[in-house]
Design a protein around this nucleic acid. Structure first.
Lengths: 132, 132
DNA sequence: CGTTTCGTTTACGTCCACGTCATCGTGTCT
DNA sequence: AGACACGATGACGTGGACGTAAACGAAACG
C-alpha cells in the first residue's frame, strides 16, 4: 500500500508516451487508473501493466491481443477455466511468433543473397566504367 | 516469349488475392500488366513480381518499401548510381529485419516463461479443487 | 435477344493507433 | 485577481492497405 501514485504527465515522462496514448489505452480497457475527482492517478500496478503493454507493442501485438494477454496476469487468481483459456490464447500467439521468426530468418537469408548479388553487379559495373 | 498470360481472376486464384489488391498494386506502381483493350493481362514477369510483393508483405514491408526493393531486380542493368542507392535501401531493411528477429526471439523467450508460470498456476488450482 | 459473368473505373468506407484541435474546469504562483 | 500550466472530454484527422458499392462495357451462353 505504498502510496506512490503518478499523474499522467509523470507517466508520460517515465515511459515516453503521450497523454493521448494513455487515455486511449484506458478507453480500450488496457488501463484503469483511479480517479481523484476527474484527474487520473496511476499506481504501481498500472505501471506494471503499461510496461507489459509497451513490450507487447514492440513485438507486434495489437492492443486487443495485448488486452487479452493481460488477463493472464490479473486473471491469474481468477477461475481456472479463465486461466486455461488465456493459456490457449497465449499458446496460439507463441506459435504465430515462432512462425514469424522462422519466416523472417528465411527472408533475411534471401535478402542477404540478393545483396551479395547486387554488390557483385555493382563491382562489375564499376570495373567496366573504370576500363572505359 | 511463351505467351502464357493470365487474366486478373486467374491471378487471384493462383495467388489468393483479390482483384482490388492487384489493381491497387498497379496504382502504386508495383505491377504493370499489359492491356488487351481495357483488360489486364499478367505475364510471367508479373507473376514473379507478385511473388516478391507477397513475400515482402509477409515480412512486414510496406508497399512503398517493396516498390523500392523491386528496383533491385529490374533496375539491375540500370545506372550504377541507382543500383548503389538500392543496395543502401536493402541494407537498411536488412538491419531492421535482423533487429526485429532478435526482438522477436527475446519476446518468444519471455512469453514461454509466462506460459510455464501459467501452466504451473493452472496445475496448482486444479490440484486445490481436486482436494476440495 | 436477353441475361448472367467477368472486367473496368471512380469514389467513398473501414480498421488501427493514435495526432490534433477546440473547449472547458482546476490548481498554483505572484 | 489575473495569468498560466495541467488535465479532462469530445470530435475530427491521418495513413496504410485494401473493402465495397455504383455504374458501365464486353463476351459468352441458352
Amino acid at each position: 500500500m505504498t502510496d506512490d501514485t503518478m499523474t499522467i504527465r509523470q507517466m508520460c515522462d517515465l515511459f515516453d508516451v503521450t497523454p493521448r496514448a494513455l487515455r486511449f489505452y484506458e478507453a480500450k480497457e488496457l488501463l484503469s487508473p483511479i480517479r481523484q475527482g476527474t484527474r487520473r492517478l496511476y499506481t504501481r500496478a498500472d505501471r506494471a501493466r503499461l510496461t507489459l503493454i509497451l513490450k507487447g507493442k514492440r513485438f507486434g501485438f495489437s492492443l486487443e491481443e495485448i488486452r487479452q494477454l493481460l488477463e493472464l496476469w490479473d486473471g491469474g487468481r481468477g477461475r481456472t477455466t479463465q486461466l486455461a483459456r488465456t493459456i490457449e490464447v497465449a499458446e496460439r500467439h507463441l506459435t504465430e511468433m515462432i512462425a514469424r521468426r522462422d519466416a523472417l530468418n528465411v527472408a533475411i537469408g534471401e535478402l542477404q543473397e540478393q545483396l551479395a548479388w547486387g554488390r557483385e553487379e555493382l563491382a562489375r559495373q564499376t570495373a567496366r566504367s573504370d576500363a572505359a
